[in-house]
Amino acid sequence: MAVASRDFRELRLEQISRDFGQFHALRDVSLTVKRGEFVALLGPSGCGKSTALNCIAGLLQVTGGAIYLDDQRLDELGPEDRGFGMVFQNYALFPHMSVRRNVGFGLVTQRRPKPEITRRVDEALALVRLETQADKLPGQLSGGQQQRVAIARAIVVAPPLVLMDEPLSNLDAKLRLEMRAEIRRIHTMLGCSTIYVTHDQEEALSLADRILVMIDGQTRQIGTPEELYARPASADVAEFMGYRNLFSSATEAADGGIAVSIGGARLIGTPVGAVAARATVAIRPDDLRLTGDGPIAATVEIAEYHGRDFYAVARMADGTELYFRSDTRIASGDAVRLDAAPARVLVYAA
């Protein structure tokens, strides 16, 4: 029977690794998830985040490291003995079972008495607002409804930890926003911990209490959404977090930070970590502001109207490409001057 109960303090991943032959899908990933916490594993596709999730679920065996739930070692147990809930990318609903039987599956394997199963399935269905669909087959439901069934099936067993593998990737944009709010609501209501795998930084930022950014099977940064947004630990994390302007630049010491040169224009930036004579400079499009006397002179090439503001691509005299946002109307061909606050110009070791 499942070892896990809801009364736990934390789940610990201690340097877990997973190799597929010569390929290191996951290398020395450590993470502690507190009870009630919502942690997102964020990274580009193929970065190992789904491998990590499958290792936690027990669907993949770790090739190194250990997984603990409080003092109990989990990595040697099969998935059926861990007692976690999991929502799969394609939902993996049993096509031959009604919604009710899908949701009740975990309780049936636990040999719960029938009245208890009925009661808890009804509760779970009410939680995901699917009471009226209980007797349908999954194939008769819409994508969003299938998603709700998958969530209900994962939470009905009252798992200490719910694992979600890109659960929103198959939904259209509008439904995705709706389900995002729904997932957060259910998480808060149940008080369980959630580990959520996604490649969408916006999703991770809006949902998670903490985010683990993974690139090439390794942890690059663990932090709160605010930390990740404002201060990525390295240039590749910055790129992934939406710092679209990345330049290679020489550096020199300057008042209030470090001076860098972008297409010949001098900017003051903030070093992140130790920075040598050459560095990578990262600036968000939002942080490049239009000013009358900014140091960067460029010509607008493309200006896209986004409803409230404009997103534009501009080119400097030496060919350097810049992405920036503007509140005022601009058009291609306009000559613009741009500036960025020193705190928002992040300088990383090259």
Binding site: L59, P79, D81, M86, N90, A92, F105, T109
Partner: peptide, 18 residues
């Protein structure tokens, strides 16, 4: 048969025979 279905069963506590 989608292998995820069996994985879903395993995570939900079903042993191989089940």
């Amino acid at each position: 048969i989608d292998p995820a279905l069996e994985q879903a069963g395993a995570v939900l506590g079903a042993r191989p025979r089940e």
